[in-house]
Design a protein around this nucleic acid. Structure first.
Length: 228
DNA sequence: GCGACAG
DNA sequence: ATCTTGTCGC
């Protein structure tokens, strides 16, 4: 099955997502890992800046950081984020020296209307364990978790448990964690909380975000200086 | 038709 | 996501 068609159409996208939802693995199928990789993408119109930051477990030593400037060929549509971010991420993935053991994506996994968000899409594409960690809820309802770091409450949609609102720092707005692929919700919550050392967002994702933004800014500065 | 809508 | 300064609260 072609997970990223050349030409985007809502019809094809929906059929791909139903396939993903039918094939996502909701159980952890690995033991100890030596690293975790955060992914983030920044944009300036059709220019996409994709960053990966891999941290060693359990000591957080940075093993690799990579940022690739490429082109985004698909515009964003709610519910179809992966069709915009996926192709640039795949381009950049090819330049990684070390292939990720566990991905942490800035977006939802199965906490998605048809249970096939970015983390699930990419996790299945790369056949690699993945966690979805979003800053905003996209669908479903949840009770605000207690204000203590580590508290969480389930996100339910149509009677189904699809993720958790996790308080990663005392009193701060929770993040929304869900299974991406090949992991269970409890483990996804544990990895997310473990990597949120001093901030609301997990270090791998936060660092990837900084890297993608700064690299894009540098790229744009260089572009305008060339046209002068 | 209306409003909502990950990043 | 992105356009954007100072400011309030933990």
């Amino acid at each position: 099955m072609e997970l990223f068609p050349e030409k985007f159409s809502q019809k094809k996208a929906k059929s791909i997502q139903s396939y993903l939802a039918r094939n996502v693995v909701k159980q952890k199928d690995f033991n100890e890992l030596s690293s975790i990789t955060g992914v983030d993408v920044s944009y300036a119109d059709d220019v996409a800046s994709v960053a990966f930051v891999t941290l060693r477990l359990l000591d957080f030593v940075e093993l690799e950081r990579l940022c690739v400037i490429t082109k985004a060929g698909v515009s964003y549509k709610p519910g179809f984020l992966a069709f915009r971010e996926g192709p640039p991420i795949i381009d950049a993935y090819g330049q990684l020296r070390q292939k990720p053991e566990l991905f942490l994506f800035d977006g939802h996994g199965i906490a998605h209307p048809v249970r096939a968000g970015l983390a699930t899409h990419m996790g299945i594409y790369f056949d690699t364990p993945a966690i979805g960690c979003a800053k905003e809820i996209f669908c479903g309802e949840y009770k605000p978790p207690a204000y203590l770091r580590g508290s969480y409450s389930g996100i339910r949609d149509e009677g189904e448990l699809i993720g958790a609102a996790l308080r990663t720092q005392n009193s701060l707005k929770p993040v929304f964690v869900s299974i991406g692929h090949r992991i269970d919700l409890g483990s996804a919550i544990q990895y997310t909380l473990f990597t949120c050392r001093q901030h609301r967002l997990p270090d791998p994702v936060r660092l990837a975000h900084q890297l993608s933004k700064s690299s894009l800014a540098g790229y744009l500065r260089n572009q305008e200086s060339l046209s002068k």
